[in-house]
Design a protein around this nucleic acid. Structure first.
Lengths: 251, 251
DNA sequence: CGCAGAGTTGATACCAGTCAACAAAAGTGG
DNA sequence: CCACTTTTGTTGACTGGTATCAACTCTGCG
């Protein structure tokens, strides 16, 4: 009843009312110009967990942004093995994997029930060509997606299982903080198997890693509920040093 | 003397005369429009091996394309450890790592003496906004760079040392073929240490991997000179199946 | 000729993958 | 609503691949 009405309002609300406005494509765009972008954004009905936004080989028709929920992009190699290329939280663009060839190299899969905005790519390119600020913001969000890919590589190369897991939890926390949610208490939208796949580990190793962090009092784990109890220790394990140790001067 | 004149001619030659034209930014751009792009491209004097195009933290001022030679982009983490994020052959864009934040996350380093075109980013964005075909091609080359990053992840995750090395050699061969050079006989522009770093292995493991491939008659190795003797076997080791082995029926 | 850097090869230790059994949670149908 | 099944996650024992340490060779170069 009341909730249904709210949901409809939510779906109908445009970019100007969206809480992600400053993190998403509209960031830095004037209120006047925003309408042009808003006009081409399709707000779809909720997608169920496991549902796909696009499949391997599909021609690139649109880019997507989650309003809530979470997604994964999965590459399938010739042997049919799956490789999770990225996880996508609200405000992060999905579907850029098709930019190079015009066809998707990955499948975009909802991890949980989610709401998503769909932006037809040809219209986006057309509007962006007329709005330099959108053009610039588009480049920025693409660049941020590249940055996340590089962070992913950084997690994989020459890091122990424990470091990868700590880095993963730290990174996820930061991304939740970025969208205004708690960085120290959250529910993982993905399974242990997904995490293992993403980190290049066996799922048993991920499970053991979580247990170890739990034993050591760094986090509390209960299934997919995570609470970070000792942020500093988690950062240390992840080799992330922030303002805390400001003495290490930078040039 | 004579050589100096030749070099100047080389440097002065525009995109229209460049052998990489169809692989680089100008691809798909009409001869008329090409001049506008050509006007903003700076062709620099050769850079020496080890020289840097940009450093960590530099504001993004330009993107670069090698005309010949080879480059690496190296991320430096807070502990001062280096992580090679990518190798760049002629025609591949360098410097896109700054798109997200406006500042370089990596250093762009020449592996050998090389010639490079420099395209000031603000001018590029300005011209691209007026030329839809350039705009489109810019998106494509950015997308291809993302594709290479994903291939990199694919090399790292859940693959044995032997597979990574085979995949690396295979991929390098394909990239040389793409720019019109031999895919089965080439000189590695990077050291064993660089390869190891890129593949997330110890340099000794890379050396052993090369020796193993040599023993097995798959490649001939002499320092940095590589000759692929058994392409099919190399592909098999890399889990790359092309039209060749159609008998291995797939569901 | 000797030196420094790059690459190769050998011996050893240990981290993480694999196999296996179990436990808990989430669906499913009567 | 409860028994059953299926999925998901945890824990243990064992093994193997790769990092590490170390010695050595080769190459180019001043």
């Amino acid at each position: 009843m009341a909730s249904t009405v709210l949901d409809l309002n939510h779906v109908r609300r445009g970019c100007a009312q969206c809480s992600l406005q400053q993190l998403c494509l509209p960031a830095g765009i004037s209120a006047g110009d925003l309408q042009q972008l808003d006009d081409i954004v399709k707000r779809r009905r909720p997608v169920a967990g496991g549902e796909r936004l696009f499949r391997l080989g599909d021609p690139m028709s649109a880019v997507y942004v989650a309003r809530d929920g979470a997604f994964k992009t999965v590459a399938l190699n010739e042997d049919g093995e799956e490789q999770i290329v990225g996880f996508h939280l609200p405000g992060e663009l999905i579907g850029l994997d098709a930019l190079g060839s015009g066809h998707h190299r990955c499948e975009g899969v909802a991890l949980v029930e989610a709401n998503v905005c769909e932006v037809p790519y040809d219209l986006l390119a057309h509007v962006a060509a007329q709005l330099p600020s959108l053009q610039q913001q588009l480049m920025r969000v693409i660049g941020q997606s590249v940055d996340r890919d590089q962070d992913h590589v950084g997690m994989l190369v020459r890091r122990s299982a424990g470091e990868r897991i700590a880095l993963f939890l730290h990174g996820l926390g930061e991304r939740y903080r970025h969208i205004g949610q708690s960085a120290i208490q959250f529910k993982l939208p993905m399974s242990r198997e997904d995490i293992a796949n993403y980190l290049g580990l066996a799922l048993e190793t991920v499970s053991r890693g979580f247990s170890k962090l739990h034993e050591d009092g760094v986090i509390a784990v209960s299934g997919r509920r995570i609470e970070v109890l000792d942020t500093l220790e988690l950062n240390r394990l992840a080799h992330v040093h922030e303002a805390v140790d400001a003495k290490r001067g930078r040039a």
